[in-house]
């Protein structure tokens, strides 16, 4: 009998914990992020720290560097004026949405594709970069395009939480997908022959190919991956402001300058096409 009470007590406690957790889930979204940021003169961005050309931690300085980082800095200046501060929290594809939803970061600029599923959970700005998904393989590999991977026994490496792993299920349903926590792990796993190809968006892959001479991007783009800045739901003012700032940096040439700075010398990448 005593044991039964014990169990009942435990059950109630569990249920109570669960209720508190779910009841509190909405509280963060109610603040006006833009008003807060304008007051503190600071925007907290979630950015990549392991993705060459987009957001990569510099071992020498410890700072993040890349196209997205520069773009975020330029947009912050447009929104908050020249004194506006830009804080970066390194995120992975797995951690970015929880951190946005719980209010640790104000916006995500981390190679995040705009998809209908994600739009149910977060709001996106207009696309700031039109990527497409492609493949990275060892030079001389028999894999030439996504169809070569659509066979039993083929293994594709990707990053968990990224849209590219979902696309593989659509385009090469017979392949087995291994999802690792970030691009550094995925590239290392490709080199360790844990998979036949690594898949993600072309811009990221060109960055990896530039660093690893024995590897090449093949097969062209088999999807369209427009990257958007993600903000929480019910932050219309903030989103509109970000869209405005994005148009501003495109209009005054900053966007094209950054594109040239980061993608001008990337072999195989046609940055002229991407100009805005």
């Amino acid at each position: 009998m005593k044991r039964l009470w014990h169990l009942l007590g435990l059950g109630t406690l569990l249920a109570a914990m669960l209720l508190t957790l779910s009841a509190c889930g909405q509280s963060v979204a109610k603040q006006d992020v833009l008003a807060r940021d304008e007051q503190s003169k600071q925007i907290t961005w979630g950015g990549k720290s392991d993705t060459r050309l987009f957001g990569l931690e510099n071992i020498r300085t410890g700072k993040l560097e890349g196209f997205e980082i520069d773009l975020a800095k330029a947009m912050t200046k447009k929104i908050l004026g020249p004194n506006g501060k830009c804080v970066f929290v390194p995120v992975t594809s797995g951690t970015r949405v929880p951190l946005l939803k719980n209010g640790n970061i104000d916006a995500i600029m981390a190679t995040m594709t705009i998809t209908p599923e994600r739009e149910k959970q977060v709001d996106f700005t207009h696309s700031y970069f039109d990527a497409g998904q492609s493949l990275l393989v060892k030079k001389g590999s028999p894999i030439k395009n996504i169809h070569d991977l659509n066979r039993p026994g083929k293994v594709v490496l990707g990053v968990s939480g990224s849209n590219s792993v979902k696309n593989v299920a659509k385009h090469a349903p017979k392949a087995r997908v291994l999802q690792l926590s970030d691009y550094a792990q995925a590239m290392t796993a490709l080199k360790s022959k844990q998979g036949d190809a690594l898949t993600t968006d072309n811009g990221i892959l060109y960055g990896m190919a530039a660093e690893n001479p024995g590897y090449e991007v093949v097969g062209g783009n088999f999807t369209k991956e427009p990257y958007g800045i993600a903000v929480n739901k019910n932050q219309e003012r903030f989103r509109n402001k970000l869209n405005w700032a994005l148009r501003e940096v495109e209009r005054d040439g900053t966007y094209n300058r950054l594109l040239l700075k980061w993608f001008g010398n990337v072999k195989g990448f046609n940055y002229q096409e991407m100009k805005r």
Partner: peptide, 28 residues
Amino acid sequence: LAFVAGFDLMYQGNLIANDTLQTIPTYF
């Protein structure tokens, strides 16, 4: 095993959390 794509419970949990974006309920 979640770190090395070992298809264990934690790995599946990470995938589902990333997929559905229902992080806390999934990990619960």
